[in-house]
Nucleic acid binder design. Sequence first.
DNA 1: CTCATTGCAAAACCTTTGCATGCGC
DNA 2: GCGCATGCAAAGGTTTTGCAATGAG
Lengths: 150, 150
Amino acid sequence: MKDHSNAIGLSTYEHILKEMEEKNLRITEQRKTIARWFADQSGFVTPRVVYEHMTQHHSGLSFDTVYRNLRTLVSLGILEQFERADGVKFRLHCDSHHAHHHHFICTSCESIFPLDFCPMDTKIRVPEHFFVSGHRFEVFGLCSDCMINT
Amino acid sequence: MKDHSNAIGLSTYEHILKEMEEKNLRITEQRKTIARWFADQSGFVTPRVVYEHMTQHHSGLSFDTVYRNLRTLVSLGILEQFERADGVKFRLHCDSHHAHHHHFICTSCESIFPLDFCPMDTKIRVPEHFFVSGHRFEVFGLCSDCMINT
DNA sequence: CTCATTGCAAAACCTTTGCATGCGC
DNA sequence: GCGCATGCAAAGGTTTTGCAATGAG
């Protein structure tokens, strides 16, 4: 259970709906459920998990509806997509998406925490004459909660 | 075409076979072909590409043989597995696998180049009381060859 | 000869697509 | 009512599994 209001006083859930509206998406019951679900998650989730949750609220829900919505929400920048060893996963786009940053990822609960360190800010030697267009930096380990509960 | 002999004077191909032998794997024709193929690649390859190459040398080759061997070779540390946006890919394990290092990956030809920089060597601030067990750092861009040919 | 490895076939997934129906606006 | 979203069904692709046959050591 996590939900923090933002500057304008909207809950995360309301914020997502507002973004959908601004992008001219129709606010269907299914999308409300998706929004409510992601607003409440602190970690990554697979399409399967999303489906299993949603199916509790919408009998006869089809898998392609889940996939289509995940794709749509990613392309609108509302969700983020990650390629992990055990498959594709999704997560609410980081609140602080204005500032470039990286993540600490707990290997136990899969919660993620922003880092205020970027390796590219330091002197890094890249082979001569190479053009750098992007980078990826992730730190894995145990968050304080998981260190205690094991 | 790349193949550099190592300290003991073995070609990359011979080196792979030697590793297989040491791990008590049987040297089948199929595995020779796989070894020859990976010794000759500078980038990532998908299981499909491996299959398509091998099928030229072994009529009736089955896809599961490719998968089984890829898995085996990864678990023996001969190959490395990467999760990328367009699927799972494989590559010969870096020669310099004794020294910890990261990669520069060309987004055009997918060749990879070792970097002698590790962000964890610098002072990076991780949230208090977190235990760090691993990290991932990759730089993307264009290698000098691809910058010229475009 | 023995047992790891292969080929074959089938199954289990995951993801995408086309089309008629339904629902948000 | 119009048009986007959904449900349904089916297909395409990837990866895994069981089992009998084969070939390396």
